[in-house]
Amino acid sequence: MTFESIAGLYNYWVVIFLMMTGFYIVLARKNLIKSVIGLNIFQTSVFLLYITMGKVEHGTAPIVPPAIAEQQSHASHGVGENAHAAIEHADEAHEVVHEVAHEVALTVADHGGELAHASTEIIYSNPLPSVLMLTAIVVGIATTALALALVVRIREDYGTVDEELILELDRGE
């Protein structure tokens, strides 16, 4: 176990620790609300697992600086489009080009001409895990709400949210 592998794997271990804490809460606690909280913690640790895998060393968030993105868009403008659209937008495009040229000129002045290199040199982290987890979080809260709604109904019918008491009631004691 070298220092290098510890530095390279610590993120997984943190995630596993959090995951197991959530698992422990689900197993050991008999209160239904507490179990839902345990599942939430487990879920968040899975989000973190995915996000840590998307990170690239010295990378930045996968958002292309708008000035660079505009440059690229004009470089590739009309490549995949039909000619009709291109003609239709010639006027606006002209206007936009002026605007962008102005903007880029300002930025270039600011950064001393490094912009052209920057577009190829920026390292971006992987956007795919972000996308997957983004939707998973919102779906997760919706399903958590569903679980909590069931807990509320259980409490109304059984008068308790304790797992073992509910089992006893079900056995008819």
């Binding site: 868009s73 995949g80 489009e81 039909n82 009709h84 659209a85 239709e88 937008h89 936009v96």
Partner: peptide, 16 residues
Amino acid sequence: YNVLEHHVLPQWHIPS
């Protein structure tokens, strides 16, 4: 979305 090309609104920053 590429077929929506005819309905874009460049004045609202929707250029494609």
